[in-house]
């Protein structure tokens, strides 16, 4: 299909590389930035930092619970720990450690979670966590960030190093279009309206922001004007941006690589129902686990690609 996309790309790269490059730069800027990783340094792209600052990097072995505790302890000596592992092991496996030692104790720990969602691909459901955003956003004090491409992930990584407080940063494994600018300023908690529209708003996060950009072009071809808002920060949620947009469009779609239960869509719904009830359609995984496959195949099978966003937008429109 020949589409007139509002954002385009010349290169694809994984968001975890955006994290790794941002982490190295954050380490160069601030000597208090330290790193920890539970035997996944290569997968998390933390190797360059480790090589440049070996004394500030702690390989913890396969012991995520210990890694979270160590990180909390390091903050007491004014260090800014970036603790990296797969999103599955960075959340569900260590929820109680994060809850008590990081969130409740309000420690300046950056939980850096790669390989999130279905697009992890062939490793299958054991590793494809789809519940992490929900778990993390429920924790008081926790900031939850899910950037959309390499550039945004790098910018987000630099931004959280400057921010004081616990943060969950989610990114992924697959090579993905780089469609946002390299020099972007990342404002935690500030949604980014990427495309103006009038008929329906698409609130997307993470890899699915790209699918939303594609969906907008498809909808435009069919005479539907969609607004695309990049919700890179799930918590604190930019409620003003959500309400301003829906006041104009009157209906919305949420799109995320996560369970529908407890994800971004639920946060958007809460906002709408309290201030301006309007039709909302969810694009997300509907109460199921994933499976092995390529990222493209999985997004299609579980209903998370641009075509699904288009269908959801039409459904939302019809309910206006």
């Amino acid at each position: 299909m020949d589409l007139d996309l509002k954002y385009n790309y010349t290169e694809k790269k994984d968001t975890r590389s955006g994290f790794g490059d941002g982490f190295l730069e954050a380490g160069r800027k601030n000597p208090n930035v330290v790193g920890l990783c539970a035997d996944l340094i290569g997968s998390l792209k933390m190797g360059a930092f480790q090589k440049e600052f070996p004394e500030r990097f702690f390989q913890t072995g396969i012991s995520e619970a210990n890694m979270i505790g160590l990180s909390a302890g390091l903050t007491i000596g004014d260090k800014i720990p970036f603790a990296g592992t797969f999103a599955n092991f960075a959340t569900g496996r260590v929820y109680d450690q994060i809850r008590q030692s990081v969130a409740y104790s309000n420690k300046n720990v950056k939980i850096c979670a790669s390989h999130a969602g279905l697009t992890l691909g062939e490793d299958g459901a054991t590793h494809q966590i789809l519940e992490d955003l929900g778990m993390m956003k429920m924790l008081p004090h926790m900031t939850v960030i899910n950037p959309c491409d390499y550039n945004q992930t790098k910018a987000a990584t630099l931004a959280i190093a400057e921010y004081e407080g616990p943060v969950y940063l989610r990114f992924g494994r697959p090579s993905w279009p780089i469609f946002t600018p390299a020099d972007q300023k990342f404002e935690i908690g500030k949604a980014w309206k990427m495309i103006d529209g009038t008929d329906v708003t698409i609130f997307a996060t993470g890899h699915l922001v790209w699918e939303a950009v594609v969906a907008e072009a498809i909808l435009r071809k069919e005479g539907i004007s969609a607004e695309v808002i990049n919700i890179h920060t799930i918590k604190p949620l930019d409620e003003e941006a959500i309400l301003d947009s829906v006041a104009k469009t009157g209906c919305a779609v949420s799109a995320e690589e996560h369970q529908i239960n407890g994800g971004l869509g639920d946060s958007v719904a809460q906002t709408l129902i309290r201030h301006n009830p309007a039709p909302l359609e969810y694009v997300g995984v509907n109460d199921s686990f994933g499976e092995s496959g390529t990222p493209t195949e999985l997004l299609e099978k579980y209903g998370l690609n641009a075509a699904n966003i288009v269908a959801a937008a039409k459904k939302a429109l019809a309910r206006k």
Binding site: F58, A65, G69, S71, G73, L74, I76, K79, P81
Partner: peptide, 10 residues
Amino acid sequence: LSVALGVAQA
């Protein structure tokens, strides 16, 4: 113990 080890490292 994990926390205390982190403090000791710091």
